[in-house]
Simulated assay, not measured.
Amino acid sequence: MKRKIFTTALLSCCFMICMAAVFADLNGKWKGAITTPDGNAIDVAYTFKVDGEKLTGTAVSQMGEVPIDNGKIKGDEFSFSVNVSGTDYPHKGKAYADSCAMDIDFGGNSSHFVVKRDK
């Protein structure tokens, strides 16, 4: 009986780890649009590179290309910031198989948006 419970628990843990790896694969290019607090839509593209729990890459918008700073990933949740014209914009998100849901902080005003994997 104990062996059956142990085996079931072990298989469940392995399954969860594999699923987390599938969902948290942020590596690559992602595209979407952010709606700013004043209602403007900004097309954005992110290129993410994951190395363990470190997230690096770039963000591209009509303002140009900027590096991702302070990037962290744990499981399917991640965070980073970008600096555009001297202002930091923190991001927090959750990765899914083909999309990422993110929140960006515009100095106290938050905006939720989704980016899709660029194929």
Rank of each mutant, 00 (worst) to 15 (best):
T35K: 02
T56S: 07
N70K: 11
M16L: 15
F48L: 01
L10N: 13
K72I: 14
T56R: 02
C100W: 06
G52K: 08
H91D: 09
G93R: 00
K2R: 15
F106V: 03
V114P: 05
D118Y: 08
T87F: 12
S81W: 05
T7K: 15
A20S: 15
Y89V: 01
D103R: 06
P37G: 07
V84D: 07
D38K: 01
K4E: 15
A95S: 12
G64I: 05
F113D: 02
K29S: 15
I73P: 01
E53S: 13
A41P: 02
V60K: 12
R117G: 00
I73L: 06
L10R: 13
G108S: 09
I17W: 12
S99D: 11
A97N: 10
M1Y: 15
T87D: 10
A41R: 00
M19G: 13
S61W: 06
I104S: 07
E53H: 11
I68V: 04
D88Y: 11
A95P: 08
Y46E: 01
S111A: 04
T87Y: 11
D76V: 13
F6I: 15
V114H: 05
F23V: 13
F113E: 07
M102C: 08
G107Y: 06
F48W: 06
A20K: 14
E53V: 10
C14R: 14
K92V: 12
I42Y: 14
C14P: 12
S99N: 10
T8N: 13
D103F: 05
K54H: 07
A101D: 09
A21D: 12
N70W: 03
I68M: 11
V114N: 00
G107E: 08
F80S: 03
P90F: 06
S110Q: 11
M63G: 04
A21W: 05
S12P: 11
G107M: 04
D38M: 06
K116N: 08
T47V: 10
K54Q: 02
D98N: 09
M63K: 05
C100L: 00
M1R: 14
L55H: 09
F6H: 12
Y89P: 02
Y46V: 07
D43V: 05
C13A: 15
D69S: 10
D38W: 02
A21L: 14
N109G: 07
Q62N: 10
L11A: 15
N40W: 09
A45W: 02
G86N: 05
S61P: 09
K74I: 14
G57A: 10
K116M: 08
D69K: 12
D43W: 05
I42H: 12
R3N: 15
D51G: 08
I68S: 10
